[in-house]
């Protein structure tokens, strides 16, 4: 409603209350995390909790990286992008193409996968999303188009690569033991790379001009426009960034799973949405934190119930969050 705009400039600002409202959920989240961790340590033992947490950080890292692009694109363009999960798949297969078909060293192949994903993201923006926005397409219209795009991407990949399980041919038997926690070496790599990338992403968003402009646009597009940001350029950069990071997240997810099919990205999509909503839709840092939280919650749940349930637990967290606090941990009430 137009009312929020009309009152936003009201001089009667109650700053203390505003701060209190915003800080409380963070505290609550932290308190819940500590309480759950303590309960799990007491009930299941320190080692089991540590192991689950490490596993959670592994999956959390690629969920976080997948979610950050999804949330930025939503915030910037109000596009609920159902094709984002398949961008992860695309990145994973592009890296596979680089490694196997082009014979690139793996690290180069990963960079190649990321680059190709970024370019594809930009192409979709230029060829599809931008013209549609110019036509004045509504949010639902764009959402449905992303659904169609998801089909084209997923089955396009399947058309080329087939339905068989693929892997990068990385040695997955090697196990590292740190502090008595056992972890496949690949998983350790995924976790370290993932966390480093999350931090790098956060720094890019916080410190670079482009990053700040992306966040500004995602947070409040009308504000960004009036402050003279070249929105067309930032939107393009946002797509490059979102798709590129999604491609990278796809490679990490594929490495961690060690076996992937053209469907895996789509299967991750709801977890990505869970991360996005947990962190507050449109909030890039929120998505990073939300991703890690989803990973942790899913793995912690395996201490209590069969591991088969962990994905469903993630979705339940999504629904509970939507009921309790749809604006997410970092969001403010007015945005929902």
């Amino acid at each position: 409603m137009s009312e929020v705009v009309a009152t936003a400039g009201a001089p009667v600002a109650d700053v203390d209350e505003d701060r209190r409202l915003r800080d409380r959920p963070l505290l609550i989240t932290a308190a819940v995390l500590v309480a759950v961790s303590l309960a799990l340590v007491l009930g299941e033992g320190l080692h089991a909790w540590g192991q689950a947490s490490v596993n959670g950080l592994v999956s959390g890292s690629y969920v976080a990286l997948g979610a950050v692009g999804l949330t930025l694109v939503y915030g910037t363009l109000k596009l609920t992008n159902f094709a984002h999960g398949d961008m992860l798949t695309f990145g994973a297969y592009a890296a596979l193409l680089g490694k196997v078909t082009l014979g690139l060293p793996f690290v180069v192949a990963v960079a190649f996968g990321m680059l190709v994903s970024a370019v594809l993201g930009l192409l979709f923006e230029l060829g599809m999303w931008r013209p549609m926005r110019r036509k004045g397409a509504g949010a639902f219209q764009l959402m449905l188009m992303s659904l169609g795009l998801a089909f084209v991407l997923r089955y396009g990949i399947q058309f080329v690569a087939g339905t068989e399980n693929k892997n990068y041919g990385i040695d997955t038997t090697a196990v590292v033991t740190i502090l008595d926690l056992r972890l496949a070496r690949v998983e350790l790599v995924v976790m370290i790379v993932g966390v480093v990338l999350i931090l790098a992403t956060a720094i890019i968003l916080a410190r670079t001009t482009l990053g700040r402009q992306m966040r500004a646009l995602s947070d409040n597009s009308s504000l960004a426009e009036t402050t003279g940001i070249d929105t067309g350029r930032i939107v393009s950069v946002t797509w490059l960034f979102a798709a590129g990071v999604a491609g990278l997240a796809g490679v990490l997810a594929a490495m961690a799973a060690n076996s992937f099919t053209p469907e895996f990205g789509f299967r991750l999509l709801l977890s990505l949405f869970a991360a996005v909503i947990l962190g507050g839709i449109g909030n890039a840092y929120g998505a990073l934190v939300g991703g890690l939280l989803i990973g942790l919650v899913q793995e912690w749940s395996t201490l209590l119930v069969d591991a088969n349930w962990k994905i469903a637990i993630g979705f339940s967290v999504l629904i509970i969050m939507l009921i309790v606090r749809p604006q997410g941990i970092f969001g403010t009430a007015g945005r929902v």
Binding site: M128, M145, G148, V152, Y155, G156, Q158, F159, G162
Partner: peptide
């Protein structure tokens, strides 16, 4: 191949959605 044919069906469905909505 069978996998390609089945993929193609869904690619068509996806394209139909995109083009119709657009």
């Amino acid at each position: 191949t069978e996998s390609q044919t089945s993929s193609m069906r869904f690619i068509i469905v996806g394209l139909v959605i995109i083009l119709l909505v657009a």
